[in-house]
Design a protein around this nucleic acid. Structure first.
Lengths: 184, 184
DNA sequence: GATAGTACCGTCCGAATCAGATGGTACTAA
DNA sequence: TTAGTACCATCTGATTCGGACGGTACTATC
């Protein structure tokens, strides 16, 4: 039984790249970067250097194929192999993935709130409110462009989850900001 | 002007350690680990190896002091220096920290939902629902123990933010899970 | 048709992060 | 004594990270 290599545990970045390439049919790292920035990257940042190196790694594992462009910039174009599509499928079907991790700097600051003045925490809360209000505006923009498009159904769902999080966050920080108005 | 070293950008882990040590007065890495696991670690995981190495780094920067225990296990006990408390203060007061990052594996799976059967996504959603229901139960336990304690005011607020996120998440995935029940 | 400017695109590297294997130390119970 | 179990600490190799750096193609201007 050839080929059944014990895959060295794919990372989330791996599945991101795999999924994006599989979805687009073919993609260059730069295109991946653009895609990510405009969508999932809003909530979960992936450093662009990964989006250049990861495709190579996946190619080494036989999950992607490369094809160097002849003319122009000689970009590397990647496409998914059958093995790649299978690995992606297997993961997409897997309901037992890890729990969400919330890396909210404000959460940390709040945790140590007892070590500063209450007014400082209130200012932090107010800044959060402003930040997330702006985020929501951005998302509303994006939403306008993709809502309804049938092939954007799932990306739209993803955006809605992001919006859900942001709204929840906004509500929380608003309450905190109002509880004790900071004396300017 | 001596001493004003250009600090090499403290990480969130740095502030976590700094805050914990400052709050406790004195702490060993193991105690930090326990603290973290029981609180902020629920939402934002910090590898324990960091909680051993980071205090040393901070000591090197003059923000913490060590004191090796004489007897027993010869634990290293850390405490904050004046410079450490100042660095922490400065950060706690800073309202312009980064935005939250949501690393939710389900978010990624959902994003690529178009590449599998709808039933698979529904199963993913159902698993998420179960997962977050359990999380909420755990949080309710913790909440019982700290609600009302005046010195737990801020950690409690932190927990409430976590609960807020989890509830929002649960609502989202519930809706998705019900929209199209998976055929068992 | 030279020059300059500005996107566009890709690579590299040192530092930080990570999971988890490993190993030792104190208590507890038989 | 011995064995077992928490408790505690370190180390390591692999991966991730941010961002500096450098090159390439278009566009505008004269």
């Amino acid at each position: 039984m050839l080929g059944q290599v014990s895959t060295p545990r794919l990372s989330y970045t791996s599945y991101l790249v795999l999924g994006l390439v599989a979805g687009l049919g073919t993609a260059t790292p730069y295109e991946l970067k653009q895609m990510v920035n405009a969508s999932i990257g809003c909530f979960w940042s992936f450093p662009h250097s990964q989006l250049y190196s990861e495709p190579d790694r996946l190619t080494g594992l036989g999950l992607l194929e490369v094809e160097q462009e002849e003319a122009g910039r000689h970009r590397k174009r990647y496409s998914a192999t059958e093995a790649g599509r299978e690995a992606l499928q297997a993961w997409l079907r897997d309901p037992d993935t890890g729990r969400a991790e919330i890396r909210e700097p404000g959460l940390l600051q709040l945790f140590f709130g007892a070590l500063t003045d209450e007014a400082d925490m209130t200012r932090v809360a107010q800044a959060r409110v402003k930040l997330y209000e702006q985020e929501l505006e951005r998302y509303a923009e994006i939403e306008k462009n993709i809502a309804g498009h049938p092939d954007m159904h799932y990306p739209y769902a993803t955006l809605r989850l992001g919006i859900t999080f942001t709204r929840a966050s906004l509500a929380f920080w608003s309450e905190l900001a109002e509880a004790q108005p900071a004396d300017e």
